[in-house]
Nucleic acid binder design. Structure first.
Length: 541
RNA sequence: GCCCCUGUAGCUCAGUGGAUAGAGCGACUGCCUUCUAAGCAGCAGGUCGCAGGUUCGAAUCCUGCCGGGGGCGCCA
């Protein structure tokens, strides 16, 4: 789709060349001013460049406006120098109508596609919760984020693979096994064991050998199946479920350690094998193999990440971890560096903690104590769409407080319903059009120009923003920006719907057709946006 | 003590270098014989934690301080 901000950037660059500025060592921006009085777009080019050239920004701005590049640009109806030296662009209304036609042409399959990924092979690893209990709402929060990020990246030209790392081995699996066996005997799980009701349930079903390891593995497999189901019910599907046990059993850990050793990053101390990570960005050295001969979690994780890059050939890996795993970041990056993998290719996003408040009381979420609020519980109460949009209403960097009582009580006032209601109204309008036998016909840009009501203009501006939103969301790994955009579009649509009748008998054919075109374009935009955040576009409410 | 995140309206959060800081919820007031009122509109609500600094311009960048969350294991 035509991207005006890019067109105008080129225009400014051409004007700069015209006035003899060849090399730009200062970045300028073309942006959308908040205040409508300042036009549709503005640039700070004269502001940031003028000073460097020893000219007053305002004078330089006037000079740029005077260039033939500016005066021959066909889609503006005026320029002004404003404030300290901004150049404001007043666009001809047609610039929006052109884009609306493009949205209709591109349709749901293409609208909002951008190519920032250039087919880069990227893996997004997220959730990866230990298979020792059901997913809680905090896991779901990041699941929604990771899945939406993956969808945004796909629409941005990345070749994406979604992965869940299953920690199906080690101490916690033994602990799970012990808890099951204890329950089987009718006693309490040992200190540090798992106390949730699901453990009792599993114990009842288990009739295998009484070996702790075997029992733990068996239980973990059951739990993983349950996790898969609750993620599927949440609209989240992974391409790969990668088993930690398989990494260990394949000998990849030994292989990785000897590679690190060969590069001189491994030493032995007190019977353990250490990674000399403090030399390469970590705050201290780390143990790879304990003195009892077991590998540490870190050793397995390094082998796993090595596998991602060197065996499976991902150009880039994005891990979404909870902030409580922050301590792993420097070690993992150091290990990648030691293996000759540029650590910049490994992006670790840390999701700050999600806490739940219920009836004004903080719910302490503990998997061991079995007090967490299951994702499936919230999804059952709120629905997938509302839950997903709720999860995407704040950024990953913000520790979020979820007031469960309010969220469930006020579910009807959840922003998700607001967005879905907009789509339902559109669907209803289109059904009504069929009923009234109004057949949709192709329109020319000239015909579409009857759309000039402030509500129509606002709506056109909002929906055509999607490609920019997707691009930003992809680049900043910030899928919640799509959710923010959706709310804005919904708001503009409701305003339009309120003030601009579409199918009233008193309206001219041109108005009806033009408004229908805008409604259809809005539908496309909403459907793309809802798909990106993993929410449904409902036909009626 | 060190590291990461964070502090914006009564509450939950958008906004991360631009010109007059936004939304939802909550309070108050209008608008349905007319395409879905799960909507629209109005009104009220702000020292953007505090103090310096950089900049033509700072909620946004830098420094310090204060408050909140998380981390600093031969756990995972």
């Amino acid at each position: 789709m035509l991207r005006w901000e890019l067109q105008l950037r080129e225009l400014v660059e051409a004007a700069l060349v015209e006035v003899g500025v060849q090399r730009l060592d200062v970045e300028f921006v073309v942006e959308r001013p908040q205040n409508e009085g300042f036009g549709e777009f503005s640039t700070n080019a004269a502001l940031v460049l003028g000073k460097r050239l020893g000219k007053s920004p305002r004078d330089f701005a006037s000079e740029l406006i005077g260039t033939s590049a500016f005066s021959t640009f066909p889609f503006t109806q005026g320029y002004e120098v404003a404030g300290p030296g901004f150049i404001n662009f007043k666009m001809k209304p047609v610039h929006l109508h052109m884009q609306v036609l493009e949205v209709l042409e591109e349709g749901e399959a293409s609208f909002g596609r951008v190519d920032v990924g250039r087919n880069e092979k990227v893996q997004v690893e997220f959730v990866s919760a230990n298979p020792t209990g059901p997913l809680h709402i905090g896991n779901g929060w990041w699941a929604a984020y990771g899945d939406a990020l993956s969808r945004v990246l796909m629409r941005s030209g990345y070749d994406v693979s979604k992965e869940y790392y299953v920690n199906d081995t080690g101490g916690q699996i033994r602990s799970l096994g012990e808890s099951i066996l204890a329950r089987k005997e009718g006693s309490e799980p040992p200190e540090g064991g798992y106390l949730g009701d699901y453990v009792v349930e599993l114990a009842r079903k288990y009739d295998g050998t009484l070996d702790v390891e075997t029992t733990g593995r068996w239980a973990a497999e059951r739990i993983i199946e349950e996790i898969k189901t609750s993620l599927e019910n949440f609209g989240v599907e992974f391409d790969v479920w990668y088993s930690q046990a398989s990494i260990e059993e394949s000998g990849a850990v030994e292989e990785t350690i000897s590679e690190l050793d060969a590069k001189g990053y491994v030493y032995e101390l007190d019977g353990a094998l250490w990674l000399r990570s403090s030399d390469i960005g970590d705050s201290r050295d780390r143990v790879l193999r304990k003195s009892n001969g077991d590998f540490t979690y870190l050793a397995g994780d390094i082998a796993y990440h090595r596998n991602k890059f060197l065996v499976r050939g991902f150009d880039r890996v994005i891990d979404i971890f909870g902030a409580d795993h922050h301590g792993q970041v420097a070690s993992q990056k150091a290990a990648m560096y030691a293996l000759g993998i540029d650590p910049i290719r490994l992006e670790i996003l840390l999701g700050q903690m999600v806490s739940v408040v219920e009836s004004n009381q903080v719910v302490k979420m503990s998997k061991r104590a079995g007090t967490s609020i299951p994702l499936s519980f919230v999804v059952d109460k709120l629905g997938v769409s509302a839950t997903r949009i709720l999860c995407l209403s704040s950024s990953l960097d913000k520790a979020t407080v979820l007031d469960l009582t309010k969220a469930l009580e006020k579910s009807m006032e959840n922003p998700a319903y607001y967005v879905q209601y907009a789509h339902a109204r559109i669907a209803s309008l289109l059904r009504m059009a069929v009923q009234k036998e109004v057949s949709v016909r192709e329109l020319s840009v000239e015909e579409l120009l009857v759309l000039e009501h402030p509500r129509e203009i606002k709506l056109m501006k909002d929906i055509t923003l999607l490609p920019e939103v997707v691009e930003t969301a992809a680049k900043e790994r910030a899928p919640h920006k799509v959710a923010t955009w959706l709310k804005g579009v919904a708001s503009s649509f409701h305003g339009f719907y309120h003030d601009c009748p579409v199918l009233a008998d008193s309206l001219s054919e041109e108005i009806v057709q033009s408004r229908l075109a805008l409604v259809r374009a809005t539908q496309i935009a909403l459907r793309v946006g809802l798909e990106l955040v993993g929410a449904d576009a409902v036909e009626e409410m």
